[in-house]
Nucleic acid binder design. Structure first.
Lengths: 338, 338
DNA sequence: CTGAAAGCGCTTACAG
DNA sequence: CTGAAAGCGCTTACAG
């Protein structure tokens, strides 16, 4: 293996101390008022030897790793993957590397991911917290670990977060359905106490109430288990609802739910939107393929990811204010909405 | 911030040196023949103080970071995301953390990701190398950096890799189509010199030849650009081919190509498989939704990911033999194949 | 403007 | 069986 070039190799060759080399290579030549000729010589030698600093050594000394921990539900799911991608890009732009972990919405895994990332001395965390993990989060707050939530948060802890305008998202969608003549609108959603889902329920319910349809409120909650289980559970509920023939519209509050629901709708050969209007969440290629294309509530993933990184980096740099950002959904209206 | 517990805190409290503590906590008590009572005392105090080792310090001293760099095309694409997930799991099981980077199939990005990961002192790399990056790879080989390729490799460099039996995958699929009466089979594939795609072309061509259909060979190559561009290009070519009405089957050699092709097929209202048989690659929910469901060649992603990690970790631990694994495709046969 | 030196928190020969 | 000490490769007060 080619011998690694070290700071002191440059120092020796330039005939100066390692301190000078460190200053120059870190752009502190102005601040430390290093001589012009020395700066030039050091830069040239560094280039010549193709010097690559050892991040580990730098981190140990400086206490900063320039690494961000990202904890999401599951990197193999497109929603998580896309947001991870945007986070990775923005982080790289700002000089940070990202370590990703998948919690599977499991509190134990989530907590152990946090521990493992902290042991690796990440400078901060971006997380979609799992249900029931608020104890662990309180510890982070107490220890002044910089972090930002995405997608959800705990209302009883004051934290930085970037979330969707979940209430408005479902409120508007339901209003749209009602204004186009639908009255029996069912909301299919995950069974969880997480705020983001609760807000989606609230948006739905209030839209129904505001249109004097409170008697028609119908919320079906699906346990958040494996993808396969979600599909089975959703299809089963859809089977019942469809055979009762009471519904004239479905609003799905998450991607996997939408897809599972669409399977059921197709199986029963229901005409969309004539018999049933449908609005999905997040967006998926299956929505484009369905006959007709499915309308959906789109989250601005790039904005969410970029914003989360920006907020986190500010926190890491020492800005102490709490930042809570709500980004706007976009309603992608297509034939299925009726 | 709660004061971090250090090795020497434990040592002080136990009245021993840090060396003993280090040995015990790293499970070297047998090898170093540490006294029983001392072992117990150290373990107890470590638990009591909730000691968390500083990985950075450990890494600097030991030269091992227990970190793996993973470079794939794009983490937001389901194929990459799923394989990343399996790699992450297996790595965690073996005590490694994964840093992920997306190359976008771009040689420059790919090379700079390698540099950045090496600066972070990853112990090894798992990569789906971008076209034209073989120079950089030769450097890795020369510097004895442990790495494993997935999905593709460079035939002129002897490297560890885990790849699909690409030749057999398309050979068998084409044979199946022919044995079910298809004669004018078109292969839609990315335009690249990468071996894995070349093997898929070869499998196709040889199957055609072996059935005396060499005059019917029709390969259409799509430049690998943005997803949007791929879709546009594929649809355009499909439009032509479909209007000529000469084809009776399509084999798509990658996921994005399949989906783009399916859009075109649906647009033209072609009956599958009556007018046109279709076989896709990789698998996607859209395949399930299409009428009829699309048959496809499935890659064993879990096996590929797990195997890649195992090989890499062996290399990191010093085993020098080159390991080249070919995993078996699975043909998921469904109505569309005719 | 520059250098000598401490120190980040571990691991690991070495000596006894 | 155990301890004192060097050292991983940087950064950064401190002194001049």
């Amino acid at each position: 293996m080619a011998k690694k070039v070290l700071l002191k190799d440059i120092a020796k060759k330039a005939g100066v101390s390692t301190a000078l080399v460190s200053y120059v290579l870190n752009g502190l030549e102005k601040e430390k008022r290093v001589g012009r000729d020395v700066v030039e010589k050091i830069n040239q030698i560094a280039k010549e030897l193709n010097y690559q600093p050892n991040h580990i050594a730098r981190s140990l000394r400086s206490g900063k790793t320039n690494t961000i921990g990202l904890i999401i539900a599951d990197i193999s799911n497109p929603f998580s993957g896309q947001i991870a991608r945007f986070i990775e890009s923005e982080a790289a732009r700002l000089g940070y590397t990202v370590i990703i972990g998948s919690s599977d919405e499991n509190k134990t895994k989530f907590n152990s991911l946090i521990d493992s990332m902290l042991n690796r001395q990440v400078d901060g965390l971006i997380m979609a917290p799992a249900d029931g993990s608020s104890q662990q989060i309180k510890k982070l707050v107490k220890e002044y670990i910089p972090f930002v939530f995405i997608d959800r948060y705990f209302p009883d802890i004051s934290t930085n977060h970037v979330v969707l305008d979940n209430y408005e998202a479902t409120y508007n969608a339901v209003n749209y359905l009602i204004s186009h003549g639908r009255k029996n609108i069912c909301l299919i959603i995950y069974k969880t106490l997480a705020v983001h889902m609760q807000q989606r329920i609230l948006g739905y319910k209030n839209a129904m109430k505001d249109n004097e349809l409170e008697d028609n409120i119908m919320v079906k909650e699906i346990p958040r288990k494996s993808y396969f289980q979600v599909k089975t559970d959703t299809e089963k509920i859809m089977d019942e609802l469809i055979s009762e023939k009471k519904m004239d519209a479905f609003l799905f509050a998450a991607n996997a739910l939408s897809i599972s629901g669409l399977y059921a709708i197709r199986k029963h050969n229901i005409k969309v939107p004539d018999e049933l209007a449908v609005i999905g969440f997040d967006g998926h290629e299956v929505f484009d393929f369905f006959e007709p294309p499915i309308a959906y509530i789109k989250q601005p993933l790039e904005e969410m990811g970029t914003e989360a990184v920006r907020i986190l980096v500010e926190q890491i740099k020492g800005i102490k204010k709490t930042v809570q950002t709500e980004v706007k959904h976009e309603f992608i209206n297509r034939e299925s909405s009726g």
